[in-house]
Computed example of a mutant assay.
Amino acid sequence: MKYFWLFIVFFLITVIFIAIIRKPGSIYKYEANEKNPMEGKKVVFVENKSELRNADGLCGHLEAIGDTYLKRRPYNNFVKRVIDIVLSLIGLVVLSPVFLMLSLAIVVDDPGPIFFTQKRVGLNKQYFKLHKFRSMKMSTPRNVPTHMLENPDQYITRIGRFIRKFSLDELPQIFDILIGNMSIIGPRPALWNQDLLIAERDKYGANDIRPGLTGWAQINGRDELEIPVKAKFDGAYVQKESLLFDFYCFVVTITSVLKSDGVTEGGTGIIKTKEKK
């Protein structure tokens, strides 16, 4: 038993050391061509049919209308951060066998990298590198969001279908939580080119807190929500953010994941589309 606890302590020290080392490289802060030009700015979405289509399926761009002044939130900046660190460390220890099994399954199913990274929008619109278990084939077109692929199902691996159904592909984000780019509960981090979602969230201050592994919008529709509706849920979370509300979101998330509620390959807008039919 003594050796077991020594192993746990060694594992935790190693994980914390890796987190400290990896933190600077996990954000697009020093690469001028990768840094978000809208970081620290309040923005609006300007539609322009002559521009390329973004990840929201619209043509247009973001325009800055002022600076963001982040409010100091005692719960968010200290209490929640401590909880995130403690729970992420526990999660990495407890789920380490799951990480190992999924890693082996991914490589056997479709040889290649176990993880993949995406540029996402974090606190105050700072770009960071979000990590996931790879669920798509190596032949999948690069830099194309899943919901913008033609027939995305054809690119999903067999193990990928399983881990996406139960959101297991999101587990590596526990490490993103540990290093401080994410929280356990918060708005899901937008893709760097989801301009409409970013602008809509700005209306409610939802870009002014750390994005989360799960959140209020996630348990109220997930992929089925239209962007303006999703942003309103994210804004509602900002207003309700507290220890008890985060606990409620966490518990309900587990139930939603087990039932695969709201998971739709192909993006957002399902509710609206169904209503029109």
Rank of each mutant, 00 (worst) to 15 (best):
54 N>W: 12
166 F>R: 15
87 L>H: 06
87 L>C: 03
247 F>D: 07
54 N>S: 04
276 K>F: 00
3 Y>I: 10
274 K>S: 11
258 L>R: 11
126 Q>W: 09
81 R>M: 01
53 R>S: 05
179 I>R: 15
185 I>T: 14
197 L>N: 13
244 L>S: 10
200 E>I: 00
158 R>S: 01
27 I>S: 10
227 I>V: 14
121 V>W: 00
96 S>F: 12
214 T>Q: 07
178 L>C: 05
145 P>R: 07
190 A>D: 08
172 P>M: 13
1 M>G: 07
200 E>G: 08
224 E>C: 07
161 R>K: 13
224 E>R: 13
255 T>R: 15
213 L>I: 09
6 L>V: 06
106 I>K: 02
155 Y>H: 11
104 L>T: 08
164 R>A: 00
229 V>E: 15
18 I>H: 01
155 Y>N: 04
265 E>K: 05
51 E>K: 14
17 F>L: 12
21 I>V: 12
110 D>I: 08
80 K>W: 03
169 D>S: 09
264 T>C: 01
246 D>T: 11
1 M>F: 02
1 M>Q: 05
254 I>R: 12
158 R>V: 03
129 K>A: 00
115 F>C: 01
216 W>K: 09
139 S>A: 09
249 C>R: 04
157 T>N: 05
77 N>W: 07
176 D>Q: 05
208 D>N: 13
237 Y>L: 09
94 V>Q: 12
59 C>Q: 15
227 I>R: 13
212 G>P: 11
51 E>Y: 14
221 G>I: 05
242 S>W: 09
236 A>Q: 15
105 A>M: 14
206 A>H: 08
33 N>T: 12
28 Y>D: 12
254 I>F: 12
221 G>D: 10
132 K>I: 15
126 Q>P: 00
106 I>L: 07
38 M>G: 00
251 V>K: 10
137 K>D: 03
29 K>F: 02
91 G>N: 10
12 L>H: 02
124 N>K: 12
102 L>F: 12
152 P>D: 05
134 R>Q: 06
234 D>I: 02
33 N>S: 08
124 N>F: 02
38 M>K: 14
33 N>A: 06
